[in-house]
Amino acid sequence: MTADLLTEAPLPSSVSTRPMDDLDQLEAQSIFILREAYRKLKPLAMLWSLGKDSNVMVWLARKAFLGRVPFPVMHVDTEKKFPEMYAFRDEYTKRWNLDLLLGYCPPVEEIDPSLPPAARSAARKTAGLANLIEKHRFKGVIAGIRRDEQATRAKERVFSPRGASHKWDVRNQPPEFWDQYATPHEEGMHIRVHPLLAWREIDIWRYIERENIPLVDLYFAKNGKRYRSLGDQDITNPVESNASTVAEVIAELEGSNTSERAGRAMDHESEDAFERLRVAGYL
């Protein structure tokens, strides 16, 4: 990786008082959200899945807190990730001076057998996450989901309360407007904080380009295929692509009309598989 703390700053070529463009606005809103979470939810942690959105989120935290990430980052390890992802994790934990917490997932045999196979496999992560949250009694967990990824996620709140069972009560979500967010008011409750909710896939990539944020190179095409979204090895499939740089990925997305999660098996197993996962506490 060429970027390190000193050289990773080829700065946006801008005058400081130029009007804000769309990425500036998304960045400013995400920083606002992260600062609200840091102020209101203690203890707080951020989920770091090692994917592109997650890296953007860590990056935004460093923007919010002037170069630091002042809370732990959690990697909920299914132990089925790609080897490149583990190498990336180890390198950037050091480079970014992250306080890394690892969580491990129970074996698939312990998961609800009525779920379709890929969803059942993905649900391991929910269980692993729940264990970590309970162990550390986190009041806030920052997660990098976006509304445009999946229709169920489009219904989410920026601050999404979870009861003691970690369930998402979609029928009874609190009002959220004028940048006023829910706060936990009951024992055992925590808030899922979603600073990237308003970002779209293309925004993430344009921001990665602008800020020169490092990524696992599985996102870039080799032999005509690349990963658009990274999950476990056994339930994520690469897409056809020749995009081997960030700029090429952006160009490809500008012309694309398919869903980012097209390569995620669990989204296609049954109409409600993803909804069931989310209601149970999946991201």
Partner: peptide, 15 residues
């Protein structure tokens, strides 16, 4: 594995 960021060259400021 090639850990060098494939986009290590300064990004074109198309925007």
């Amino acid at each position: 594995m090639d850990m060098n960021a494939p986009h290590s060259a300064p990004a074109p400021q198309a925007n």
